[in-house]
Each structure stands twice: as structure tokens, then as C-alpha cells.
């Protein structure tokens, strides 16, 4: 669980272990790993998409620690403990501060419900758990909280990727355990 990319900061990304294999403990003897290798191209693109969402070359207004904290929050909200543990470890390895540690807990919301952080977390929670309820008003709220168009697309991309990963981990876990 402690195996995060930053613990291998000396390695190029291409040589890092597959995040989902690591999270699910799939080793060379695992039939699910052999099955994943039948779809090697998309397995690799899932890994490169992870870096694009969590550790992009231009993180701008969402630091790596902030991204890991939001990812840990989403994984925990979906009761995916293996993935939440991975992101909690990543958050620590990225040097996340006390606020980011609180963000990783899906029960946390700032006392000031109108603060930009509260707006951000409500959006993350809504789009993670009930995307069908999202509307234009939610994007307008993010703009009012100071996010620009690129921030909004970056945030949407992070939420969407982590939810993809949660669904994939759940499906692979079903195959691994039965």
C-alpha cells in the first residue's frame, strides 16, 4: 500500500509498477494479471492516464498533494479501501499538509460553507456519488469560487479518472476474489 510513485522518484514513470496491480496485490501468479495483459494497451493507457490526472507536468492550481487528497476522498466515499490507502500514502509522500489530510476524509467539510474549499469539495462529492444531479449551476459555483476554465476541466478530469479507477478496481476485485 505504501508503494507510491514518489517513493520511486528516481525512476522514470515508464518503469514504475502498475498502480492497479499494486493496489490489488496482483502478482505474476495471478490469473487476473494474465487477463489484464490480454488488454495490454489499455492497461498501459490507464497507467499513463493516472500520471496525467495525478502528476501532470503542469499542475497549476491543483498541487500533487491536493490531487492525491481529493483522490483519497473519492476512493473512500466509494468504500474502496485499497485505493484510498494508496492515495493516503501518496498524499503523505507528496508532503500534504494538515488541511489536505482533512480533505482526504469524505466526512470533512469546512465550517464556512461558502468558502472556495467548501464549494470545491461539494462539487467533488456530487460528481463522484451522484453525477446525474450535476447542472450548470455547479460549474457557475466553481467559477464564482475563483476557478478558471482550465481549472474546471482539470478538476473534472481528475474526478472522472478516479471514478473510472474505482469502477475498474471493483470489477477486477470481483474477478480476483471469486
Amino acid at each position: 500500500m505504501s508503494e507510491t510513485m514518489t517513493l520511486h522518484a528516481d525512476l522514470p514513470e515508464a518503469d514504475l509498477p502498475d498502480v492497479i496491480d499494486t493496489v490489488l496485490g496482483l502478482d505474476a501468479s495471478s490469473p487476473v494479471l494474465a487477463l489484464r495483459h490480454e488488454r495490454a494497451k489499455l492497461k498501459q493507457l490507464t497507467q499513463t492516464s493516472y500520471f496525467a490526472a495525478l502528476r501532470p507536468a503542469e499542475p497549476r492550481n491543483f498541487s500533487y498533494a491536493r490531487r492525491a487528497a481529493l483522490a483519497a476522498r473519492m476512493a473512500a466515499a466509494w468504500k474502496t479501501p485499497e485505493l484510498a490507502a494508496h492515495y493516503t500514502a501518496a498524499l503523505a509522500a507528496e508532503g500534504g499538509d494538515a488541511e489536505e489530510t482533512r480533505i482526504a476524509d469524505p466526512a470533512f467539510l469546512p465550517e464556512d460553507a461558502a468558502s472556495p474549499l467548501a464549494v470545491l469539495l461539494r462539487h467533488v462529492d456530487l460528481v463522484t456519488r451522484t453525477p446525474k444531479a450535476a447542472s450548470r449551476a455547479n460549474i457557475e459555483a466553481l467559477k464564482a469560487a475563483g476557478l478558471d476554465d482550465r481549472d474546471i476541466v482539470a478538476l473534472a478530469g481528475l474526478i472522472a479518472f478516479v471514478n473510472y479507477q474505482v469502477l475498474l478496481v471493483a470489477g477486477l476485485k470481483m474477478l480476483r476474489d471469486h
Binding site: 490469473p31 487477463l35 489484464r36 490480454e38 488488454r39 489499455l42 460528481v127 453525477p131 446525474k132 450535476a134 455547479n138 460549474i139 474546471i152 476541466v153 473534472a156 478530469g157 474526478i159 472522472a160 479518472f161 471514478n163 473510472y164 479507477q165 474505482v166 469502477l167 475498474l168 470489477g171 477486477l172 474477478l175
Partner: peptide, 25 residues
């Protein structure tokens, strides 16, 4: 087959992604 099940998991998961972009942006 297990490969068909894996393909189904992927198609559902990638729409967990796509829906969260198209329906929210």
C-alpha cells in the same frame, strides 16, 4: 468468458469517466 467480462467492466468504467465529463461540463 473472463475476457468478455473484463471488456464489459472496462466499457462501464470508461463511461463512469465519460459521463462525469459530458454531463457535468
Amino acid at each position: 468468458s473472463d475476457l468478455e467480462i473484463l471488456d464489459l467492466i472496462h466499457s462501464v468504467a470508461i463511461f463512469g469517466w465519460a459521463n462525469r465529463l459530458m454531463h457535468t461540463l
